[in-house]
Computed example of a mutant assay.
Amino acid sequence: MKTLSFFRLVLAVGLCLGVGALGSLVTTPQIPTWYAGLVKPSWTPPPAAFPIAWTTLYVLMAVALWRLWQLHAPSPARRLAIGLWLAQLALNAIWSPVFFGLEAPGAALVVVVALWLAIAATIWACLRIDRIAAWLLVPYLAWVSYATTLNAAIVVLN
């Protein structure tokens, strides 16, 4: 049982960090070029802050998924929570290619609003079965709230 638990944790962390790594492949080349040329609000963090924040959030997200997967028996509530968790991760995965890859902040704003809603729904679903998993996602919702305002400001300023 401990081997299965560890495997699930490694898989969850790998899934989240993998999404982050794929996003960085699209993002990193654009930072000194296209992104540097955008008008950004004064409260934009330095580029070095993003990988630190996202790595931390991806680990918290992974632990939340692990808790749902490992600590709770299959049920409709668990299936809903994991399904919403996967939906938010998919939206997370497409934001960077839309914003940076397509150079489309307006379209990315639509994606990040959908992401925010998916995270909020995931937290709500988690609260029904695992309060710790839900709370692990709260910093993520806070960061995506901030990222949404930043994305919106970039749309307005450019």
Rank of each mutant, 00 (worst) to 15 (best):
M1R: 00
M1Q: 05
M1A: 02
K2V: 11
L4Y: 04
S5N: 11
S5M: 11
F6H: 11
F7T: 04
L9T: 01
L11P: 08
L11Y: 05
A12Q: 02
A12E: 04
V13I: 15
L15G: 10
C16L: 14
L17F: 14
L17T: 00
G20V: 06
A21W: 15
L25T: 13
V26D: 06
V26C: 02
T28V: 15
P29Q: 06
Q30W: 08
Q30T: 01
T33H: 14
T33F: 11
W34L: 04
W34E: 06
Y35S: 08
A36H: 11
A36M: 09
L38F: 02
V39A: 14
S42R: 12
T44I: 06
T44R: 11
A49D: 10
F50Q: 03
F50C: 10
F50L: 10
A53K: 12
Y58G: 05
Y58H: 11
Y58D: 10
V59P: 07
V59Y: 09
A62G: 08
V63P: 05
A64C: 04
A64T: 03
W69G: 04
Q70T: 13
Q70D: 15
Q70W: 07
H72R: 00
A73M: 00
P76Q: 14
A77D: 15
L80N: 12
L80E: 15
L80P: 07
L80G: 00
A81T: 02
A81N: 08
A81D: 00
I82W: 11
W85G: 15
L86P: 08
L86K: 01
L86F: 12
A87P: 04
A87Y: 08
Q88T: 11
Q88L: 04
L89F: 09
L91V: 05
N92Q: 07
S96A: 13
S96E: 01
F100R: 08
G101Q: 08
G101D: 03
L102T: 01
L102V: 00
E103L: 08
A104H: 02
P105S: 00
A107T: 08
A108V: 10
L109Q: 00
V111C: 09
W116Y: 08
L117H: 12
L117Q: 14
A120D: 12
A121M: 13
T122W: 01
I123Y: 05
I123A: 04
W124R: 15
A125C: 10
C126R: 03
L127H: 13
L127T: 11
R128K: 13
R128Y: 07
I129M: 05
I129Q: 01
D130T: 07
R131L: 05
I132E: 11
I132H: 09
I132T: 14
W135N: 10
L136K: 04
A142S: 14
A142T: 15
Y146H: 04
A147Y: 12
T149W: 15
L150D: 01
L150F: 01
A152V: 14
V155R: 09
V155M: 02
V156Y: 14
V156D: 11
